[in-house]
Simulated assay, not measured.
Amino acid sequence: MTPKRILITGAAGFLGSHLCDRFIKEGFHVLGMDNLITGDLKNIEHLFRLPNFEFYHHDVSKFIHVPGELDYILHFASPASPIDYLKIPIQTLKVGALGTHNCLGLAKAKKARILVASTSEVYGDPLVHPQSEDYWGNVNPVGPRGVYDEAKRFMESITMAYHTFHQVETRIIRIFNTYGPRMRLNDGRALPAFIGQALRGEDLTVFGDGSQTRSFCYVDDLIEGIYRLLMSDYAYPVNVGNPDEISLREFAEEIIRLTGTTQKIVYKPLPTDDPKQRKPDITKAKTLLGWEPKVSRADGVRITYEYFKSLPSEELTKQPKEFKSLH
């Protein structure tokens, strides 16, 4: 039987590479696409020898051509860390708008089902807690984070428009904080930042007073939720994340205990529009998908720490990528 063909954009990124692995395992023919601005071929180099994997070096903000039939599309191309999207704001907006438009057009032409990767950032700095899918959010469209938040909100809007107007089979996932192997140590998010600082013998930086909360989901759990949502018949947004909430100060203390570092926590001013609380209401995922996270934070963080420890020493001091100026 001919395997189903799936296009995964952002394939060389943290989540995209894990999705490539999962769909290869499920017997799909995987077409990975990435412009490698934030992705890294090292994440998928183990797949290049496989006959059911192809790679396209391409920017989805430009017209996408994929020969042959296509059954599914996973649109995961986007900068996802504050360090990235604050340095390349226009590219971030373009991949959320033009890139999503191109992927939806391809889905329409190929009669493929498409799942787009939205984010808990569509809720902004939330005024309700925990955040459920019917909450419309509290987002500053002209603040520094607006380029990411509003790109994802537009992504959801145009995806629903293609669903209702063109009858494209669409799925929307709202991803909450996720971590695991293949994250970049220098991407600015709390977990890799804390572990990187501990491994370098630096003090751990907490912004604000550390009372702001996050809910961390291990990558394997998230990938399972994505798979189940893609195979479901539900077109509206679904939260996927781990509702086990912790303050960033407590989380930094956990990392200190795990790594055995003698360094202390230092506090710096809170960035503009940084969310004070983040916790998913996953009732819909439980009800519709039969999904909930299985990996505890203690187990997942330990696995991730072992991964970071195994990296070459130069990775610990590697600086974030420098991006070209964009038009």
Rank of each mutant, 00 (worst) to 15 (best):
Q263T: 14
P192Y: 09
T261H: 04
T178K: 01
I226T: 08
F251A: 07
A151Y: 01
A161F: 14
F154I: 15
K152C: 09
G241Q: 02
L191T: 11
D244N: 13
S232V: 00
I175L: 10
N242F: 10
E224G: 05
T205C: 06
N138D: 13
K152L: 11
H166K: 14
G208E: 11
D149H: 14
L230Y: 00
V168G: 00
R171P: 07
I173C: 01
Q131P: 05
Y179D: 01
A161N: 15
L258N: 00
E156Q: 06
P141I: 14
D187P: 04
M231Q: 13
I223G: 02
V238W: 03
E156C: 00
K264V: 04
R174S: 03
H166Q: 14
E202H: 01
S232M: 00
D220W: 07
A190R: 02
G241F: 00
L248S: 04
F216M: 12
R228S: 06
F154D: 08
M155G: 13
Y179T: 04
P144F: 12
G241R: 04
Y234C: 03
T178Y: 00
F194C: 08
T164R: 14
E202G: 01
R182L: 14
G210W: 05
P237N: 09
S211E: 08
S215T: 03
